[in-house]
């Protein structure tokens, strides 16, 4: 039994929904308070988030850093485009693996649902034109070295 749904819309969108037994205010705070984010935004088991910096204002930026017990790590940076307490967050983010991946645009909505909250997250993945533009801006040089590092990491 899973409370979460994950569906794709075309080639570029991923839609995630999840219900929580807490108010939209609490769920929203858990998405914007660094001490709370560090407790749950960890992905697969075995990873921790040693560093979480976040400036939850429109135009503010954030940086999350993950590490595992084997000494591997990566980070993510992003900027907030819109923050509407306690109903909506729009942000853009990209990972550094350690190379910068193209930007992902994410809109997260929190709606009252009975005594809880329905969260809807819509991710917009980069299109091919974006990927090509990134690859033609001279990133390639740095990429080769960092892919070599990634190979030793995984």
């Amino acid at each position: 039994m899973s409370k979460m749904t994950l569906t794709t819309e075309g080639d570029r969108h991923i839609l995630v929904t999840r219900r929580f037994a807490a108010s939209p205010e609490a769920v929203y705070r858990a998405h914007t308070d660094p001490a709370l984010i560090q407790k749950w935004l960890l992905g697969p088991d075995g990873w921790t988030m040693p560093s979480c910096e976040i400036d939850p204002r429109p135009g503010g930026s954030f940086r999350y850093e993950w590490a595992n017990d084997k000494g591997a790590g990566f980070h993510l940076t992003g900027e907030f485009e819109a923050l509407e307490p306690f109903s909506r967050i729009v942000h853009v983010e990209r990972m550094f693996l350690p190379d910068r991946t193209p930007d992902n645009h994410v809109e997260t909505r929190f709606e009252p649902d009975g005594s809880g909250t329905l969260m809807t997250m819509r991710m917009t993945l980069p299109d091919e034109a974006t990927r090509k533009a990134m690859l033609s801006t001279g990133m390639e040089h740095g990429m080769e070295a960092s892919y070599a590092r990634l190979e030793t990491m995984i």
Binding site: L6, I14, R29, L42, P44, D45
Partner: peptide
């Protein structure tokens, strides 16, 4: 990949349930 993303998100949100229970 979507399956892995799903699994990572599910793990996140299961942990978030506990965080929210503590906040309440």
């Amino acid at each position: 990949w979507l399956g892995l993303l799903r699994r990572a998100l599910e793990a996140n949100y299961d942990r978030l349930d506990e965080v929210l229970a503590g906040m309440d």
